[in-house]
């Protein structure tokens, strides 16, 4: 299938000198696309740029063959965007605001507008509070409002920046459901810090760090590649530094109160290490250490 969204060599430098994106190239087709990356990696910057809310310094982005910087309006009428952080006009109810945004998005038929707004309110479980001012919503409720507005109209490109932040587990599941359902016909780009979500939802993903794409592919394939290479061992806290010096440590984590160190290696690195099945977070951490650490030899692909 053709790639609907093509990003070529996108770079962005803010006026304070921060290079938020450098030479980012991605090809994305219909379905959910996960973006992972540490804080400050440039995920939001990339998404804002794709939403044409800011311009890039160089590079090209085409959506359905149209250059989005040359004709931002063409993109915007098929865009659904949920920013990482947003506010709303005070003293307006969820319903009023959704109606307003629906008008701005160009739903000209009143009945269609009403139906879609009602549907979205129900899907995001806000129907019962639809007359309450959004500015008095709880954090999670507001986030759901954000999701609802991103889906208004006829979005072909949905960009959601940490959509599940603040959602309770039930709401999160509900949202994932909705997203998968929609994702079949449109492009959905989703950034998150919950690696499992990407694993569960996204057929494709990329990891961003320091403004660069350091890894991209299908989560299953990437995880597969690490099969048999991840080793773990329970150690004492003071030993961490020693291991980090000696071995290609990708992460440490605590399970059941025990400090576990994960190491990437083709064979058992030391006695006491046991092999463990790789998961996507191992891919994530190994990618990060590979990109940021000095031990270039631990490349696994």
């Amino acid at each position: 299938m053709m790639h609907r969204l093509q990003i070529r060599d996108l770079s962005k430098r803010y006026s304070n000198g921060v290079q938020a994106l450098s030479q980012v190239s991605l090809d994305i087709s219909n379905g959910l696309f996960g973006l992972l990356g540490p804080n400050g990696a440039g995920k939001s910057s990339l998404m804002r740029t794709l939403a044409t809310l800011q311009t890039a310094d160089s590079g090209q982005v085409q959506f359905d063959g149209i250059d989005i910087f040359k004709d931002p309006y063409q993109l915007r009428c098929q865009l659904g965007y949920l920013p990482q952080d947003f506010g709303v006009y005070p003293r307006l109810s969820a319903q009023e605001l959704l109606h307003h945004l629906a008008v701005l998005k160009g739903i000209d038929n009143k009945a269609a507008r009403q139906e879609q707004v009602a549907a979205l309110l129900q899907q995001t479980n806000l129907y019962n509070v639809r007359r309450q001012a959004v500015s008095t919503f709880s954090g999670g409720m507001r986030q759901r409002f954000g999701i609802a507005q991103a889906l208004l109209g006829n979005p072909q490109l949905i960009i959601v920046d940490e959509p599940t932040a603040g959602l309770d587990p039930l709401e999160r599941n509900r949202f994932h459901d909705l997203l998968c359902q929609i994702g079949e016909q449109v492009v959905v780009i989703l950034s998150t810090h919950i690696v499992e979500d990407v694993h569960d939802l996204c057929p494709n993903m990329a990891i961003l760090a320091g403004g660069r794409v350091i890894l991209q592919g299908k989560p299953a394939v990437l995880t597969e590649k690490l099969a048999g290479k991840v080793w773990q061992k329970a150690i004492a806290r003071q030993e961490v530094a020693r291991y980090q010096d000696k071995l290609p440590v990708i992460s440490t984590r605590i399970t059941g109160g025990q400090l576990q160190v994960l190491v990437l290696s083709d064979s058992q690195p030391e006695t006491g290490f046991t092999q463990c099945p790789p998961d996507l977070s191992a891919v994530y951490f190994s990618a990060l250490t590979g990109a940021t650490g000095t031990k270039k030899e631990v490349t696994v692909w």
Binding site: N128, L151, I182
Partner: peptide, 22 residues
């Protein structure tokens, strides 16, 4: 003051994209 909306649980409407005219 928000009028307490009756916690009605209507038959959930499915979400559809609708065409836009911009």
């Amino acid at each position: 003051r928000t009028r307490p909306t009756t916690p009605d649980s209507p038959i959930p409407l499915p979400y559809h994209r609708v065409s836009v005219q911009t």
